[in-house]
């Protein structure tokens, strides 16, 4: 299937979705480098997990449906899976961050290694 038989509106919409998805993922990962501590960095990751992935999935549904000439929405599976699992990882990491930080400060109040 070649690229040059999709209508103009799908071309425009798919391009917009892909560009915004890529940009959001990039900004989210940039947050990993720019934000000051662990807890703040987690917010940056959520950016790519939610709307960055969502935009790319929508673009994939759109383009695949036009190529197959019927409504293909298998990508909904990934969306459902990510909605139900990515909060689990984040909450577990959050709680372990809180727990280990507290364990650190109880042992030695002035810890030089922890730069957070």
């Amino acid at each position: 299937m070649t690229m040059d038989e999709i209508p103009f509106w799908a071309d425009l919409l798919g391009s917009l979705l892909l560009i915004s998805g890529g940009l959001l993922t990039l900004i989210g990962s940039l947050g990993l480098l720019r934000l000051p501590n662990l807890f703040a960095r987690m917010h940056g990751v959520t950016l790519g997990n939610t709307l960055g992935l969502g935009c790319v999935l929508l673009a994939s549904i759109l383009i695949a449906s036009i190529h197959a000439e019927r409504f293909v929405f298998q990508e909904v599976l990934i969306t459902l899976f990510m909605i139900s699992t990515s909060p689990v990882t984040t909450i577990l990491l959050m709680r372990s961050g809180i727990y280990r930080k507290r364990a650190d400060t109880e042992k030695e109040p002035v810890s030089g290694q922890d730069t957070n």
């Binding site: 987690m42 917010h43 909060p87 984040t90």
Partner: peptide
């Protein structure tokens, strides 16, 4: 509620008090 709060960028669920009356969240 935990899924909603964590899936929204900017807020993360950080814990619930043992009696279930107070919620701790982390806000960017």
């Amino acid at each position: 509620l935990a899924c909603i709060i964590t899936a929204t960028p900017g807020t993360i669920w950080a814990g619930l008090s043992p009696d279930g009356g107070t919620l701790t969240i982390h806000v960017l």
